[in-house]
């Protein structure tokens, strides 16, 4: 019977999670295109190839994530202390950038949630995926930009 008691605690509703101080380096990504495959595979929807679409999605209020080199995605709930992550300026301005972040990590129901308290370094865009994929989606650059 005593062995069953911990199960009761496991079943209790979770109202808060314990955070973990972390330092994470990763690319600021558009989580919708990355997770859904709507624009193609994960390699095509990061970096310079997908930069304009990442701007659209960030401005459109789609959650941004931090994609670490090991493939882990962290869902960002604050960016550099700014909680306006549903379309706010801070995340928009660093779309596709690789940053070094210091903050608190929370895990719940299979997702990693990251509160970025400080961006300790901004390496700009380092992932030149346009060399392999062009632009994704193809209409990101309007025909009006074609050289004469």
């Amino acid at each position: 019977m005593r062995a069953l008691i911990p199960l009761l605690f496991l079943a209790a509703p979770v109202h808060a999670a314990d955070g973990e101080r972390v330092q994470i380096t990763g690319e600021v990504i558009d989580t919708w295109c990355y997770f859904s495959g709507v624009m193609g595979g994960p390699d095509a929807v990061v970096g310079s190839a997908h930069h304009t679409c990442a701007l659209w999605c960030s401005a459109g209020g789609i959650p941004v994530g931090l994609l670490a080199p090991d493939g882990t995605v962290y869902m960002v709930l604050k960016m550099d202390g700014d909680d306006t992550t549903a379309g706010g300026d801070t995340s928009l301005h660093i779309a596709s950038h690789t940053i070094e972040a210091d903050g608190m990590l929370y895990r719940r129901d299979g997702l990693n949630y990251l509160v970025v308290e400080e961006i300790t370094a901004d390496r700009d865009i380092v992932n030149a995926t346009h060399e392999d994929f062009g632009v994704i989606p193809g209409f990101a650059i309007p025909n009006s930009e074609a050289p004469e």
């Binding site: 310079s48 190839a49 701007l55 865009i125 030149a128 632009v135 990101a140 930009e145 074609a146 050289p147």
Partner: peptide, 23 residues
């Protein structure tokens, strides 16, 4: 953002070079 950093985010010069191949 596009005016400042270009469609690829790497600056207007990289954009112009890319456009020659893309279009």
């Amino acid at each position: 953002e596009i005016e400042q950093e270009g469609y690829l985010g790497l600056g207007p010069d990289v954009d112009q070079a890319f456009f020659k191949d893309w279009f």
